[in-house]
Amino acid sequence: MSNIATREAYGKALVKLGDLRGDVVVLDADLSKSTKTSEFAKTFPTRFFNMGIAEQNLIGAACGLATAGKIPFASTFAMFATGRGFEIIRNSVCYPNLNVKICATHAGISVGEDGASHQSVEDIAIMRSIPNMTVLVPCDAIETEKMIFEIVKYNGPVYVRLGRSAVPQIFGEDYDFEIGKGVILREGSDATIIACGMMVNEAINASKLLKEEGINVRVINMSTIKPIDKEVIIESAKKTGAIVTVEEHSVIGGLGSAVSDVVSENYPVLVKKIGINDVFGQSGKPKQLMEEYGLTVENIINKVKEAIQTKQ
């Protein structure tokens, strides 16, 4: 099965959704070729709106369409959606609890050569801090499509974080995505790895190598960051006694912080966080950047071993 970027799957899912629902409209901020909303624009030109390089207007127009009974999907790069669009998202989308879906692509350092100005490593933290906002991060193309079809049925603000780089397929066509539920991909009792987005595949690969050394690790795909699945986190803390979180995002305010909140209040165990350690990104090839910032199978393995050693 070939690798597919979640942004590619998003573009295809929108077209499928558009065939089924006439109330779905799509907006973009002059980046439709990159966000892949251009596919929807070609198929449904009267239901697509290019707002130009004006992200606040992009979100504001989506709000207006939502109040008129449409289901707007607003897209641009994650840096601009959550950065330039923050005030409108807070005051015009989430405060009145409007049914707007913000699907931002090119998140994280895997944007690559575009560099720090375009590499959003703060977007999850920003979005999960806003009341009424649901925050989702699919790990592959299958989950992306299932997620898009699920959020159209959900009434309320949603932020979906999508990537530029192609990623391996993890789920089959029979997978059922559910908002607010983590998925256990591999079982184990020595430690738990909780990952999201493109780091889920790395977590799986790390667990396989650890298995060869006699270390059995539970792996969870936490594609819903908010509302997070407290039940599976607490269960994992009790069963394994140590957790390693892995995300292509700052260690401040993202998946690791959300998991730590749950653990500290319900069943305190060691949580080690792998992510961007309070620094900006830089220009480079995606693979080089992942290695530079420790988003690798090797680092996951080392952190798991450290966590197991500490709990003992």
Results as ranks from 00 to 15, higher is better:
residue 1 M to D: 04
residue 2 S to Y: 07
residue 3 N to F: 11
residue 5 A to D: 08
residue 5 A to L: 06
residue 7 R to F: 06
residue 9 A to G: 12
residue 12 K to C: 06
residue 13 A to P: 04
residue 14 L to N: 01
residue 16 K to V: 05
residue 19 D to E: 15
residue 19 D to T: 13
residue 21 R to M: 09
residue 22 G to H: 09
residue 24 V to M: 03
residue 25 V to L: 03
residue 30 D to A: 11
residue 33 K to R: 14
residue 35 T to M: 03
residue 36 K to R: 14
residue 38 S to K: 15
residue 39 E to C: 09
residue 41 A to C: 13
residue 41 A to Y: 09
residue 42 K to P: 03
residue 45 P to H: 09
residue 46 T to G: 06
residue 46 T to E: 14
residue 48 F to S: 06
residue 52 G to I: 02
residue 55 E to S: 05
residue 55 E to R: 05
residue 56 Q to C: 07
residue 57 N to M: 07
residue 58 L to K: 03
residue 59 I to H: 09
residue 60 G to Q: 07
residue 60 G to F: 10
residue 60 G to V: 10
residue 61 A to V: 12
residue 62 A to P: 05
residue 65 L to V: 04
residue 67 T to L: 15
residue 69 G to R: 13
residue 70 K to D: 01
residue 71 I to R: 05
residue 73 F to M: 03
residue 74 A to H: 01
residue 81 A to P: 01
residue 88 I to E: 11
residue 89 I to P: 01
residue 90 R to Q: 13
residue 92 S to G: 06
residue 94 C to V: 13
residue 96 P to V: 14
residue 98 L to Q: 08
residue 100 V to T: 07
residue 102 I to E: 02
residue 103 C to Q: 01
residue 104 A to Y: 01
residue 105 T to G: 06
residue 107 A to I: 02
residue 107 A to H: 02
residue 108 G to V: 08
residue 112 G to F: 15
residue 112 G to Q: 11
residue 115 G to R: 10
residue 116 A to N: 06
residue 119 Q to A: 13
residue 123 D to N: 07
residue 126 I to N: 04
residue 127 M to C: 13
residue 128 R to Y: 00
residue 129 S to K: 14
residue 133 M to I: 09
residue 133 M to Y: 03
residue 137 V to A: 07
residue 138 P to K: 01
residue 139 C to V: 07
residue 141 A to S: 15
residue 141 A to E: 03
residue 144 T to D: 03
residue 145 E to A: 07
residue 147 M to D: 00
residue 149 F to T: 01
residue 153 K to C: 00
residue 154 Y to Q: 02
residue 155 N to G: 01
residue 156 G to I: 11
residue 157 P to C: 09
residue 162 L to F: 04
residue 166 A to C: 10
residue 168 P to S: 13
residue 168 P to F: 12
residue 170 I to L: 15
residue 171 F to W: 02
residue 173 E to I: 13
residue 177 F to P: 00
residue 180 G to A: 08
residue 187 E to F: 06
residue 189 S to A: 14
residue 189 S to D: 14
residue 193 I to D: 10
residue 194 I to H: 11
residue 194 I to P: 12
residue 195 A to G: 14
residue 196 C to W: 00
residue 196 C to F: 02
residue 198 M to E: 15
residue 201 N to Q: 15
residue 203 A to C: 10
residue 204 I to Y: 00
residue 211 K to W: 01
residue 211 K to L: 11
residue 216 N to W: 02
residue 216 N to K: 15
residue 218 R to V: 12
residue 221 N to G: 13
residue 224 T to C: 06
residue 225 I to F: 03
residue 226 K to D: 06
residue 227 P to C: 12
residue 233 I to D: 04
residue 239 K to W: 04
residue 241 G to P: 07
residue 242 A to F: 02
residue 250 S to F: 03
residue 250 S to D: 09
residue 251 V to A: 11
residue 252 I to F: 11
residue 255 L to S: 10
residue 255 L to N: 06
residue 256 G to V: 12
residue 257 S to C: 14
residue 258 A to E: 09
residue 259 V to F: 03
residue 259 V to T: 08
residue 260 S to P: 05
residue 262 V to L: 06
residue 267 Y to G: 00
residue 270 L to A: 12
residue 271 V to S: 04
residue 273 K to Y: 00
residue 274 I to L: 14
residue 277 N to T: 14
residue 279 V to F: 00
residue 284 G to Y: 10
residue 287 K to Q: 15
residue 291 E to W: 07
residue 292 E to M: 12
residue 296 T to W: 11
residue 299 N to P: 06
residue 300 I to M: 11
residue 300 I to T: 15
residue 301 I to Q: 09
residue 303 K to L: 08
residue 305 K to F: 10
residue 307 A to Q: 10
residue 311 K to Q: 09
